[in-house]
Design a protein around this nucleic acid. Structure first.
Length: 111
DNA sequence: CAAGGGGCTGTCA
DNA sequence: TTGACAGCCCCTT
């Protein structure tokens, strides 16, 4: 399968860890995660990783949104799932958008 | 090796 | 962050 362990394969786990730290009821962006993982311009790749997650993952991927405050997922099903979960955590959308000032996650141990 | 397509972003209106 | 756009990066064809 994959014999060469690239940096990305390692960073992948770091990314998962970071996402697992997002508190319930809070959200963050792909870019923020990429930054915390030490790869500032890999935001899109983060999205790719989340897309590959198994349906039954316990990772709170639904707490990750794009910089515009919107749900970035294109697939209608996953999209509604994310919306439902956020709603269930008390994160409300204002005009299909999430207010970072209210729900934005401010990581405290990373700087 | 080239091209196309993403759960993306910062910048500049 | 309101909206459009040119970058950027990884994966699959």
């Amino acid at each position: 399968m994959d014999k060469d362990n690239s940096d990305l394969d390692l960073v992948k786990y770091k990314v998962w860890q970071i996402i697992s730290l997002i508190p319930k009821g809070k959200v963050t962006t792909y870019a923020a995660i990429a930054r915390l993982a030490g790869m500032p311009n890999r935001a899109r790749w983060i999205g790719y990783l989340l897309r590959q997650l198994p349906k039954e993952t316990r990772l709170p991927w639904h707490r990750v949104i794009n910089a515009s405050g919107r749900i970035a997922i294109s697939n209608p099903d996953g999209r509604s799932i994310q919306q439902e979960r956020l709603k269930g955590e008390g994160v409300s959308l204002r005009k299909q958008r999430i207010d970072f000032d209210k729900y934005g996650w401010k990581p405290e141990g990373f700087f």
